[in-house]
Structure formats: structure tokens, C-alpha cells
Computed example of a mutant assay.
Amino acid sequence: MRRKTILEYETVSFDPEKRALVIIDQTLLPGQVRLLSLTEIEDIWEAIYLLKVRGAPAIGVAAAIGLYVAAEQIDTVDEELFYQQFKEKKKYLETARPTAVNLFWALEKMEAVVKKNRGKGVGEIKKLLNREAMQIHDEDIEVCRRIGEYGLKLLNSGDGILTHCNAGKLAAVKYGTATAPMYLGQERGYGFHIYVDETRPLLQGARLTAFELAAAGMDVTLICDNMAADIMKKRLVQAVFVGCDRVASNGDAANKIGTSGVAALASYYRIPFYICAPTSTIDMTLKSGSEIPIEERKETEITEMWYEKRMAPENIKVYNPCFDVTEKELITGIVTEYGVAYPPYEESLRRIFEKKFE
């Protein structure tokens, strides 16, 4: 009996029979593919916080479905009481990952459904919340496909592409963001060679990106993070494509720690560096990347997580930010579902949103 590949599973979905959020537990990949059916809001929060589900688009979809699952369990027909409990659950989920703006975007969209439909009864509001969560899920697939189409136009057959962290199918429902041009290129015979940074300290590149792209039949080479300069110097890379968790209105972008270093190297070697970002990841309320909150994670991710025995000295100080901010000057373009934004980003991103709402 043929085993399913990782590409045949949905990263995030809803099980209508169990009334559950279903995710792939990404902390177990690539060694084990396990689906988790989550019905309790504490488990949903933990799954987001512990990176069992991760990647900005996937976090947004999971948050929307998770909030709907939690709302279904509110046992009252009193609309005011329902709304108060709904807001408490929404506020709780907001604390799971402070940097990922998609989390807040999706939760705000869900709350807007409740506000807009006050007076229709709790039962009807729950149905509309389900519809909104499923629409967020379905739209993610189309948004990523469109990012892939725009990104593919920036590449040539046979190009070498470097990516950092995981902005792939496992970070979304399908296609991913930074990997969307790679998936479409694979379907159309472009013959890309993909270089994947392992991405310390959580190894999302080694565990996830290399895993899913290889499963799709792509030509993939895994490298340590500190090898990026070497392959750029040897002209093995013609473009860098990465995702992000939040973009400020001036074009500064927060992505997995190490991204800004890759961008600086690409600038030095004159290699185009692209951020792939759905508009739901662009926060036009922020003037610059200095306003983006950066999550700092547990020191054990560096000192002992991947080792049989602790590898660092006891009581050594550890600095473990989850993200860094790549300055706009290092970014060649920002690929969205409405086209590619180029500097000056204050103007081009504004035009992207005008196109979105026209």
C-alpha cells in the first residue's frame, strides 16, 4: 500500500464531524507525520505557541478555525454573553505568537463577523463564523498561487534559488509563499536548483523545507546557515526568496532569525532578494520595522534541544530572538498576490492596497 507524501496532507483544516481544528504536528517532521485534532482552546494556543503549526499564513488559518471551534463551545443563546466570552477567547489566542500579524488579522476578521451580525441570534452567528473561517482557508490557497505566478516571472529556467526557514506548503495551506514560484516552476519544467538554509535554532529549513520540496521532486541541496556566502560567491544562486511574518509600511520585513544576514550577503554579491508576503502580512499601521514586536524564545532551543546531552555550559547567558528585521534597503522587491512592490515601498505598498480594495 502506497504511503501518502507530505504534499497530500492539508497543513491546516477543519473536521466537521469532530468539530475540530486539524493540523500536521510540525515538531515531529520529517520523522513522523501525525495529524492533531484539537478542540480545546488551550491546546490550540499551545499548538501555535510551540510551533506545531507555524508560518504566517498557516497561523492565520489555524487561528480562524480555532476561534470558530472555541466559539461553538460557548453554551448560551444570550448574544451579549456570547460576545463577551468570544472576545475573551480571541484575546487569549492573540497571545500565542506576538510577531505574526496574520494571527491578529484572522482573529479580527472573525470578530468582525460577530459585530456585523449582532441581532441574528447566536446559532446564526456561529454558522457565519464557520463560513468565514473556511473562506480564510480557501483564500489562502488562491493567494499563495498568485504570489507564485508573480514570483515565477522574476526567475529563469535553471536558476539557483536560496531560501531561509520554511515559507512553503507547511507554512500555508498549499504552495506556500516563498516556495510558491518553486512549486509552479516544478510543474512547468523550469528545472530550478533550490538551496535550503538549515535555519538555526529550530531547523525549519532542514526539517520542513528540504522535506517538502524533495517530496515534490525538486532538486534540493541543504546547507548550513553559514554557508550562504560561499554559494553566493560561487554564483550558484541567482535569486533569494523568503517569506515573512510582518512587513511595515516602509518595506522593512520581519522574518525568521538569520534572514537579515542573508539579505546583507545578497546585497553584497548583487543577487536579488525578494520577500514573499500576502497582503494580510503587511501592516500598514507600522511606520518601520523598529515597531515590530520580536518574540524571544526559550534558551533550551539553543543549549540542548537537538542534542542527546546539553552541549552548552551550564548557566551560560543565551540570546534567542525568533525573528530579525530586514531593512527595506536590502530588499529588491516584495511579492504579493496583487503584484510586486518595489522601492520606494511607502508608495508601492500603498498602490498594492489600492489595487486590493478597488
Rank of each mutant, 00 (worst) to 15 (best):
L67K: 04
D140R: 05
L103Y: 09
V77E: 10
A96L: 05
M110E: 15
V143T: 14
E88K: 09
E79Y: 08
F86Y: 15
D75P: 00
D43C: 03
K89L: 15
V113K: 10
R146C: 00
Y92F: 15
Q135V: 02
G123H: 15
A70S: 11
I125H: 08
E88Q: 08
S157M: 03
C165D: 05
W45R: 11
H164W: 07
L93V: 03
N102M: 04
K91Q: 12
A56M: 04
F86A: 13
F104K: 15
W105S: 04
L93N: 06
E80K: 14
E88Y: 12
I147G: 01
R97E: 01
L35H: 12
V113R: 04
C165I: 02
I141E: 14
K91S: 14
S157R: 15
V113N: 09
Y68A: 03
E40L: 03
E132F: 01
A62T: 02
L67I: 00
G148H: 05
R118H: 09
G119N: 06
E124D: 10
K126M: 08
V33Y: 10
R97V: 00
Y83F: 14
E72L: 07
Q84P: 02
D75T: 07
E139H: 03
A63R: 06
A64L: 01
D138S: 01
I136R: 15
G55Q: 03
I161R: 09
F86M: 10
Q32F: 05
V77M: 06
E79G: 01
Q84T: 13
A63I: 00
A62Q: 09
K126C: 03
A47Y: 02
R145K: 13
V61E: 06
G55C: 00
I41Q: 12
K115G: 07
Y83W: 14
V143A: 04
C144H: 12
N166A: 09
F104I: 04
R131C: 00
F82I: 04
Q32A: 08
E72W: 04
N166F: 11
G55K: 02
E72C: 02
L154I: 06
G31D: 14
S37W: 06
D75L: 01
M134K: 14
R146D: 02
Y68S: 05
R118C: 00
L107N: 10
V113D: 08
